[in-house]
């Protein structure tokens, strides 16, 4: 590839590293898997970059590729690992700023997220990232109405976990 294009891509990836890290945080449960997924997403973005025309924002495009990569690896992994145990320590979450009740709620919510299916996780991720329904529909390749309906279902699912 053209060295300028490569430099351009590296700069973009450098600016948006956290985006990939956040996807990895949601789809993995240990540091080694996090690093593996980070690399896999970076390689997929790099391979797909020649096709990036700039019609959408780089971040929207990167969200799509990152989530697709995470989802496809998550599906492969699911065939071999039936359940994923949630371990808050490996997620490096800091609970110290929260009171006990909030901390418990958070633990339950993260546990709930770790048990969501791949698409539901992607939806929650977009919600946490404050994305509007237009961007969600672009990233996930579903209609805005569908995104809205699915999002409400996932939110309710998580709320029910806390208030059974």
């Amino acid at each position: 590839m053209d060295p300028n294009k490569e430099l351009e891509f590296i700069n973009l990836l450098d600016e948006n590293q956290n985006l990939i890290h956040k996807v990895c945080r949601l789809y993995t449960n240990d540091e080694a898997s996090h690093k593996d997924l980070f690399q896999e997403i970076s390689i997929q973005l790099w391979n797909a970059y020649p096709k990036f025309r700039g019609d959408s924002k780089f971040t929207t495009w990167a969200y799509r590729i990152a989530l697709n990569t995470a989802i496809s690896l998550f599906r492969k992994k699911k065939r071999t690992i039936s359940t994923i145990e949630f371990d808050s320590t490996v997620h490096r979450f800091e609970y110290k700023d929260y009171d006990y009740e909030e901390e418990e709620k958070l633990k339950q919510l993260y546990k709930g997220i770790s048990n969501l299916n791949d698409i539901e996780k992607a939806l929650i991720f977009m919600y946490l990232e404050d994305k509007d329904y237009q961007e969600i529909s672009e990233v996930l390749g579903i209609s805005q109405i569908n995104a809205r309906v699915r999002m409400n279902r996932v939110k309710n699912k998580l709320k029910q976990l806390l208030n059974p």
């Binding site: 590296i10 450098d14 590293q17 890290h21 800091e94 709620k105 958070l106 919600y127 946490l128």
Partner: peptide, 21 residues
């Protein structure tokens, strides 16, 4: 709301290792 707490926590926990170019 629980989900607001989650979102707040999510945004506050964004310290990741930074890779060099």
């Amino acid at each position: 709301d629980e989900l607001d707490i989650l979102k707040k926590h999510w945004k506050e926990n964004q310290k990741f290792p930074k890779l060099t170019q």
